[in-house]
Design a protein around this nucleic acid. Structure first.
Length: 478
RNA sequence: CGAGGAGUAGCGCAGUUUGGUAGCGCGCUUGGUUCGGGACCAAGAGGUCGUGGGUUCAAAUCCCGUCUCCUCGACCA
């Protein structure tokens, strides 16, 4: 049964000022703080714990798929960057360069990696000689640096944490297949761990990775209807293999270049889940990644037996595999309720003398704000675990319903503009010409996010009216 | 990079117009009473006013430079 409850907000109104809401939330919940250098952020323990959970879940999946972890150097010789023409053009404006070290000017400037295709290509070129060395599939968890002009915590920072997986294959078919299966892995991860529905598909030439043959993206709809690119996979063909001399002798004895691909997700995923699930009270964290899944708030905690009962309940839930915290600070219960709601903890248990006497506990779920005192203490493990599962499913269902509701079709620029102005993703036909894509951007400040691979059913280009080559999801994007 | 806004105690702000003793609320510390939706009483601590220079007897306040943050736009695998 629901009870009256009041919330004291410390954050901007989510509907009236979403950007400010986001900034307030990430700072006040202590996920991040600004670093002293422009565009840098400190990921504080509460934020880093989310990243650790994301990393563990993904790492398990990569390893199950047979990918090995490795670590490559931070510094890349400038000359590597220039070996792939498109790549250097794409990244040159945003690389940081080390020119001095050891008190002297360096012979060759060193680039702080913005991504590692070049140095990994170089190393893999050394390691690959025979078809027996393939496929080579490695991943690294690291930081990268891109000197961005505008930055926002998690969404775009000069330095960020990510994983980048890289594969070399004998054939283009194998490399493309890996590119798609990693995209599918991301999609499954987004659904089951972040409770976040995504659109996946190929990107346009304009939006693809510098140096790739094809780029695929995972796009998620944020609270305001804008899209956030939450992960990408790239098929490189032989572009990087030729630039870095990744050559092998095939079964037939002929020398050939390998086919490469790469894929990555970053700390931006934390921004994605904040802006997907958050509400007026602040964070709503999906149980699989929440640093604290259950917070126990003692009521009248100085009364005999209350803290002991809380500690005993915590121990039981922890033993059942849950991440649990007892808030035994001197703050009032009301203060704690507000605080942990803002911090997005999925389940709160209130435990006071009344509950203990009745053998019950009062349970509050963050996503629906429902409070019930009908839970038996003796069944705590089963009931709370079940509730965490329900919350995960409900978060996904809610986000999915919203996304589906807010995908609209358009067959003209005007319709598209109306759609994105209303906070929607817009499905439309596109002829495949860059000019039309640019026109959409100019007219509606919207970009092509991904192709709709499942239903290519829009007959004509929304811009020029010619026969459509693709059905595209357009949106305003972060 | 363009337009706009802001930097004064941990946080939120006043003080700047008209130069003259550094203020308020919350938080923090100590003690006590409280505890089912941001409790109360009492006593305390805490600031080279982002930073560098200039004007002045005197600068948070006036002038010049510079750094950082926020919003919108441009740019951005």
């Amino acid at each position: 049964m629901a009870k009256d409850n009041q919330f004291v907000s410390q954050i901007a109104d989510i509907e009236a000022d979403f950007p400010q809401w986001y900034t307030d939330v990430v700072l006040k919940t202590k996920l991040v703080d600004y670093g002293p250098v422009k565009g840098t952020m400190v990921i504080r323990p509460y934020g880093y714990a989310i990243w650790e959970n994301i990393r563990r879940e993904l790492d398990d999946r990569f390893k199950a798929a047979g990918v090995e972890n490795a670590y490559f150097p931070l510094l890349i010789p400038m000359s590597f960057m220039t070996k792939e023409a498109e790549h250097v053009e794409g990244f040159a404006p945003e690389v940081a360069v080390v020119t001095h070290a050891g008190g002297a000017k360096l012979e060759e400037p060193l680039v702080v990696r913005p991504t590692s295709e070049t140095i990994i290509g170089h190393m893999m070129g050394k390691w690959v000689e025979s078809w027996r060395d393939l496929p080579l599939r490695q991943n690294q968890w690291c930081n990268v640096m891109r000197w961005e002009k505008t930055t926002r915590p998690f969404l775009r920072t000069s330095e960020f944490l990510w994983q980048e997986g890289h594969g070399v294959f004998e054939s283009g078919e194998e490399a493309e297949s890996e590119t798609l299966s990693m995209l599918a892995l991301y999609r499954e991860f987004a659904k089951n761990v972040l409770c976040m529905p995504v659109l996946t598909g190929r990107k346009t030439e304009k939006e693809k990775f510098a140096g790739a043959v094809a780029t695929f993206g995972m796009e998620a709809m944020m609270h305001d209807g804008k899209s956030l690119q939450s992960g990408t996979t790239h098929y490189m063909g032989q572009n990087f293999a030729k630039a870095f001399n990744i050559q092998f002798t095939g079964k037939d004895g002929a020398l050939d270049y390998g086919y490469t691909m790469s894929y990555g997700v970053s700390t931006r995923l934390i921004g994605a889940l904040i802006m997907t699930h958050g509400d007026a009270r602040g964070l709503v964290l999906p149980p699989p990644v929440a640093p604290v899944q259950v917070v126990i708030v003692p009521i009248a905690q100085k009364k005999e037996g209350v803290l002991e009962a809380c500690a005993a309940l915590k121990a039981r839930l922890q033993k059942a595999g849950m991440r649990v915290k007892v808030d035994d600070t001197d703050n009032s219960p009301g203060w704690k309720f507000n605080e942990w709601e803002m911090k997005g903890v999925p389940v709160r248990i209130e435990l006071g003398p009344r509950d203990i006497e009745n053998g019950k506990m009062t349970v509050f779920r963050r996503d629906t704000l429902e409070k019930s005192d009908g839970y038996l203490l003796s069944e705590a493990e089963e009931r709370v675990a079940e509730l965490l599962g329900e919350i995960s499913a409900a978060l996904y269902a809610k986000a999915e319903a919203r996304m589906k509701e807010r995908i609209v079709n358009a067959s003209s620029l005007e319709e598209l503009l109306r759609g994105v102005d209303g906070g929607n993703f817009v499905r439309a036909g596109w002829c495949g010409e860059r000019a039309c894509e640019d026109k959409v951007k100019e007219f509606a400040q919207a970009t092509a996010r991904v192709f709709d691979e499942e239903h290519n059913d829009m007959p004509v280009c929304l811009c020029c009216g010619k026969k459509a080559a693709h059905t595209v999801f357009f949106a305003r994007a972060y």
